[in-house]
Every structure is written in structure tokens, then in C-alpha cells.
Design a protein around this nucleic acid. Structure first.
Length: 470
RNA sequence: GGCCCUAUCGUCUAAUGGUUAGGACAGGAGCUUUUCAAGCUCUAAAUCGGGGUUCGAUUCCCCGUAGGGUCACCA
């Protein structure tokens, strides 16, 4: 029976074995950057060797495993575009584990211990430790040796039906034909006892690659309880999956060149597990933001516009006021927006701080804000706006773009003082102390709106002038 | 505490016996057609300590020190 199962999973006994890696998270918490980085390296290693990548949900601890966490793992991997070739749920494999358990007991390599440590628990199954030295060559760390004597006869199952981690992992890795185990450094001290079990069930020892840990700011291990956000958090914060992939690949590895921006095919080509760092690395969101912006800049325009449009349209401000967030409008403002954001989440911030209002509605402001620096009154504002309006009215529609508008106004602004002319114009269009330049704004707004906003400013000036008697 | 792992700017890292110890993010200064943003230029910032080996150590060895991981009927 056991050999039949084995043959099925291995595809028979052939010489060269195809590389098979696995990602084996336990559904006891959401998927975070530490888990994800392991998955990425494991996936890339498999794919660059033409191999297979398996997802195995390690849910043998029924008390702590939660369906919602399992969902979170699937959801995250899907968003991150990390496809697995096969998926298993460890809890569903208990009958298989039982056979190996029985076999070990029959061979006296394991035994039912009489004493239970916790109250209420029955007998447990312990491994008969041969007490020897084990050695393995880790792909990132080199030779590692352990003396297993201090492990004692460790527990491998609570009962025949309930194997625990070490045992289930070894049996599953064996049956699934895992050739390379890429996992976190926190598993390094689990390796010797798993190697002992491998030997007992007649399984070959796979090649190990223990990755350095992803660290929180205090240099301790990143975990769901300490310093880590879920990967879905980054999705909701408006990060690009490709940026996460890129950034995480750079945490603990580098190509040895100055290249920092990669896509998946690049990584599969360039990645070299032997160049993986040995020390842990702190997860730095600032750098992630930068990587994200670089990816944002490389995005196809339509995809970018669509995503930005969604962000704006679903904001409460856009909905409350009833902005018309059309593809055409967003298409025009996307270039200026992308310069001002690192993530799509920043769009939401811009909306909330009302820095996008002027693209969708007429600005409201105080007339005196139109004044440039220490101008005494609005006389020069009126003069310049009137003149600029005149220039723009005469500008043919065909030339109504950023360069055309600038070319038309620039000589006048040069002659009269740039700030004197440009500040009132920009303010008339945006109603904000800070905004893109007036040429860009006018181009985005279009001729009718631009002229209308200048008229409004001029009106405001007249009224303010009347009120402003000393 | 036992066992194991690690150690270059604040952070991510390059340089494996010979470099002015390089790059990136973040920081500072400046430039660029009004503000903001972007961009560009410049700048500050590191080999944990002590012994060896060597003509010469970031690099090799040893000892410290520091940090981390792990020591479950969790994974």
C-alpha cells in the first residue's frame, strides 16, 4: 500500500528527479511578508529549474487552524500572482500518515509512550531517537551539523490519527517528491529531527535552503503578532503585486549588479539561491514605496488610468459631491497624478485632503489669495488676468495643450514678472496654494472651463476691491 | 541557560586578500521657467572588538561581544 502511494506521487523510479518545491504555511494567521518571501524564493527556484511548485496547507493543529486564515492564504497568493501547480491540505492526509506511523511502530522505530504530559491527554507516539550526529549542506549556509542526542525521544504524534508537524511534514515531503525545501531560518533547528524521521521511513533527505528571516524594526522575527501587516493590507493600501514581488526578492538577495527593478521573468532569470544573504533583513516600507512608484511609472497607461479612476470614483468625497469621474478626465490628470503618488492609496489621501477638487468642480477661495506675494491690492491681478484671458481666447483650439498654452503666455509672463502673472492664473484655476502649474492645469481643464474660471476670479476681484476700502 | 545561526552607512546591499570601501532608499544642500510634485547635481553616513595568518585583510582562522532563531501532545 505504502509503496503504491509513493509510486503514484513520484511518477515511478526515474533517474533525474524534477525539481519540486513547496510552500507550506499553517492557517493559524494571515499571510504576511515573511511567509510571502519564502513562497517567492521557493517558487522562483522551482520555476528557474523547470520544476513544480506545491502549496500545502499545514492544518494538522485543528484547534489553531482557521478557515478564514486559509482563505487569506489563497486570496493573497492569487492577488500576488503566485500560482501553484498542486495544492494539498495536510489534515486530509491523516490516513496516509497513520500507515507510516504504524509501520514505524511495527519496526520499533517509534513507540506509544505511557506518560502524557498534559492532563486529559492519552498516550502519545514517540520517536526512538538513535542519538547520532546529523549533517547537511544548506544551499545558503553551507555545512551544518547537529547532535540529536539532546532531542530525546521526541513526540511525532498525539495518536495514530493525529500526527504532529515534524512527522506529517516528512511523510508529505517524501510522498510529494519534494526535492528542495526552501523555508525560513526559524526551521533550521527542526531539520535534524526531520532528517531522523526521513531515515526511519526510508525517505531521501531533500536539499535544504534556509532563508534569512524577514525582520521587524527591532530586528526580531516578523510575525503576525509582531510588526507584520497582512499581504492583503498592502493590496488594500494600493500597492502593486509586482512591486511586492520585486521588493521582497531584494530582501536577502541581489543580482550583483545595480539593477533594482525586476519583473517575474527577470527574477527567474537572475535569481541565484547561493547568493542569498545569511543575515536577516528589516522590512522597510519606505523602500517598498519607492519600488512601487517605479512600477507605477512603468505601467501601461490604460491600466494606470483605470486603477486611478476606480480609486477616485469609490471615494466618499467623489460620491457625496457627485463628481463625474470619466475615463477621459482621469486620462488627462493621470500624468500629473503619478508624479505625486507612490501607491494608489495616496490617491485616496489626495482626494481626502481636497487636492483633487479642482479637476472635478469649480474652486472656492478668497479673492485676496490671488495676490502674488506682497502686492498691496488686486490691481495687478486684475490687469494680468484680463490680459492672459485675452491671450487664451485668441489661442486656437488646436494649440490648446500644455506647450501651446505656455508658448502663448510665456512672453507676457517674462515681461511682467512670472510670479505676478502665473500665480494669480494658477490660483484662479485651482484655488489652492499648491497645485500643478497653470499650463498643465489649463490644458487639463480645457478652454471653456479655463476661461470661465478666469472670469470668476475677475468677478471676485471687483467685489473684493469694492469692499476693501480702508 | 543549552543548541544553532548571523555581523559593511539609519535601512537594503556591492566589493571574498590589494578599491579614494561602490550603489539604492531615507536624510541634508542646491539647481531647474510662480507654488506643489517630479527630475537633475552635490553632500553626510559603515567594515562590532581583540588576537592571529599574510608584504597586505571587509574578505581566511581563533577568542570575545552583540543580535537573532529554537528548545510544545504549535507549525
Amino acid at each position: 500500500m505504502i509503496s503504491r502511494i509513493k509510486a503514484f506521487f513520484n511518477g515511478g523510479a526515474s533517474g533525474k528527479r524534477r525539481v519540486v518545491t513547496r510552500f507550506a504555511p499553517s492557517p493559524t494567521g494571515f499571510l504576511h511578508a515573511g511567509n510571502y518571501r519564502t513562497a517567492v524564493f521557493s517558487y522562483i527556484y522551482a520555476k528557474q529549474h523547470g520544476g513544480k511548485f506545491i502549496l500545502r496547507i499545514e492544518d494538522t493543529d485543528i484547534a489553531r487552524s482557521k478557515k478564514e486564515y486559509e482563505e487569506n492564504i489563497f486570496e493573497s497568493l492569487e492577488w500576488l500572482k503566485l500560482p501553484y501547480d498542486e495544492m494539498y491540505r495536510q489534515s486530509e492526509r491523516a490516513p496516509i500518515h497513520r500507515q507510516y506511523l504504524e509501520k514505524l511502530i511495527a519496526e520499533d522505530k517509534a513507540y506509544e509512550g505511557e506518560e502524557a504530559r498534559n492532563e486529559g491527554g492519552g498516550k502519545v507516539i514517540r520517536f526512538r531517537n538513535p542519538n547520532k550526529k546529523v549533517r547537511f549542506t544548506d544551499l545558503v549556509r553551507g555545512e551544518i551539523e547537529f547532535d540529536t542526542t539532546d532531542l530525546g525521544d521526541f513526540v511525532i504524534a498525539k495518536s495514530l490519527a493525529e500526527p504532529i508537524f515534524h512527522f506529517a511534514v516528512v511523510v508529505d515531503d517524501y510522498l510529494m517528491g519534494i526535492t528542495h525545501i526552501v523555508r525560513g531560518e526559524d526551521h533550521i533547528s527542526n531539520t535534524p529531527r526531520q532528517m531522523l524521521i526521513q531515515e526511519a521511513i526510508g525517505a531521501p533527505t531533500p536539499t535544504y535552503a534556509h532563508l534569512p528571516l524577514v525582520l521587524a524594526h527591532d530586528r526580531s522575527k516578523l510575525s503576525k503578532r509582531h510588526g507584520a501587516e497582512s499581504m492583503t493590507y498592502y493590496r488594500d493600501a494600493g500597492y502593486l503585486p509586482d512591486a511586492l514581488l520585486n521588493y521582497m526578492a531584494l530582501l536577502g538577495w541581489n543580482p550583483g549588479t545595480d539593477q533594482e527593478i525586476f519583473d517575474l521573468p527577470d527574477l527567474i532569470k537572475a535569481f541565484d539561491i547561493s547568493k542569498v544573504q545569511k543575515g536577516g533583513a528589516i522590512f522597510n516600507e519606505e523602500k517598498l514605496r519607492w519600488v512601487n512608484k517605479e512600477h507605477l511609472k512603468r505601467l501601461p497607461k490604460d491600466a494606470l488610468v483605470m486603477n486611478i479612476r476606480d480609486r477616485i470614483a469609490k471615494s466618499s468625497r467623489a460620491q457625496d459631491i457627485g463628481w463625474d469621474v470619466s475615463f477621459e478626465t482621469v486620462n488627462r490628470i493621470a500624468p500629473v497624478l503619478v508624479e505625486r503618488i507612490d501607491t494608489y492609496g495616496d490617491i485616496s489621501k489626495l482626494v481626502e485632503s481636497q487636492d483633487l477638487d479642482y479637476y472635478f468642480q469649480n474652486p472656492i477661495y478668497d479673492a485676496l489669495s490671488l495676490k502674488w506675494k506682497d502686492d498691496k491690492d488686486l490691481t495687478s491681478v486684475k490687469k494680468h488676468l484680463t490680459h492672459v484671458k485675452d491671450i487664451l481666447e485668441k489661442l486656437p483650439s488646436a494649440q490648446w495643450d500644455e506647450n501651446g498654452i505656455k508658448a502663448a503666455i510665456w512672453p507676457y509672463a517674462e515681461a511682467e514678472g512670472r510670479g505676478q502673472v502665473l500665480w494669480p492664473l494658477r490660483f484662479a484655476l485651482s484655488g489652492k496654494d499648491r497645485s500643478p502649474n497653470p499650463f498643465t492645469l489649463a490644458a487639463i481643464l480645457g478652454k471653456p472651463s479655463t476661461l470661465k474660471r478666469i472670469d470668476t476670479a475677475l468677478d471676485l476681484c471687483s467685489h473684493a476691491g469694492a469692499d476693501a476700502n480702508p
